[in-house]
Amino acid sequence: MSKQEEAEKLFLEGYNCAQSVAGAFAKEMQMDQKTVMRMISSFGGGMGRMREVCGAVSGMAFVAGVLYGYDDPKDDIAKKEHYERVQYLASEFKKETGSIICRELLGIEGKDHAATPSKRTQEYYKKRPCVKMVGLAAGILEQYMKKSN
């Protein structure tokens, strides 16, 4: 199963966008899925359902940090390289979608910031592009990882 398919499957199981992308890469991060899901859970809905940066993009950045991030605060070269990596991943996503902002992707500018998540009904899945967004983000990251190795 591709990472795109895995992320989409996780989303359809009820995980948020960030969890779906990061969870698809748990094995590669050498982390158990439950830990990954808890660590990234705050980033769904554009961070706590505030509709800011798309959770799928946050999930990509999270995985990139675990796999390629830096840990020396004085290593400006590693920091720059990592920020370039994150910017590249986000720009690939934005090329396909036009935005990395949740509310823009959903077309709900100024609406629906309630903390209560929407019920996952058939109607929800018809209206929301989220399953496609998580698949796209996971696919972009998978391709990046193949090129990097």
Rank of each mutant, 00 (worst) to 15 (best):
V53Q: 09
K146T: 08
M50K: 14
A114Y: 08
M37P: 05
K95Y: 06
L10S: 10
K147E: 14
G46T: 04
M29C: 05
G23P: 04
G98W: 03
I140W: 07
C54K: 06
R38D: 12
K147D: 13
R103Q: 14
N16A: 12
K79N: 00
K79A: 01
P129R: 03
E142D: 14
E92W: 03
G14S: 11
H113Y: 15
A115D: 07
A114I: 10
C102H: 09
V63G: 02
M145G: 02
Q122R: 12
E8Y: 09
Y70P: 00
I108D: 05
A114T: 11
A24G: 02
K79E: 00
V21A: 05
Y125L: 12
V21D: 05
A115K: 14
L12N: 11
C54A: 07
T97P: 06
R85T: 07
L67N: 02
L67P: 03
Y125K: 10
K80P: 00
M145Y: 05
K27N: 10
T121N: 09
G110E: 08
K27D: 15
A138M: 08
A24F: 02
M47T: 12
G23K: 02
E81T: 01
V131E: 14
Y144H: 05
Q19F: 06
V131H: 13
S148Y: 04
Y70V: 00
L10E: 08
M145T: 03
F93N: 03
R120C: 14
S58Q: 13
S118F: 14
A26I: 02
Y83C: 01
K132I: 08
E6P: 06
E52W: 11
E109K: 12
R128A: 07
F11V: 10
V36C: 04
E96P: 02
M50L: 12
A78I: 00
S20A: 15
M31E: 10
F93W: 03
Q30L: 09
E96Q: 11
I140R: 05
Y70A: 00
V36H: 05
G44C: 13
F43C: 05
K74M: 01
Q87Y: 08
R49W: 06
Y83D: 01
Q19C: 07
Y125F: 15
S42Q: 13
G69L: 00
L106A: 02
L12Y: 11
A138H: 06
D75S: 00
G48S: 09
G44W: 13
K80T: 01
A138P: 06
V131F: 09
Y125W: 12
T35G: 05
V57A: 04
I101R: 11
K74A: 01
E123M: 06
E142V: 03
T121H: 10
M1P: 09
T116I: 14
A137L: 06
A138R: 07
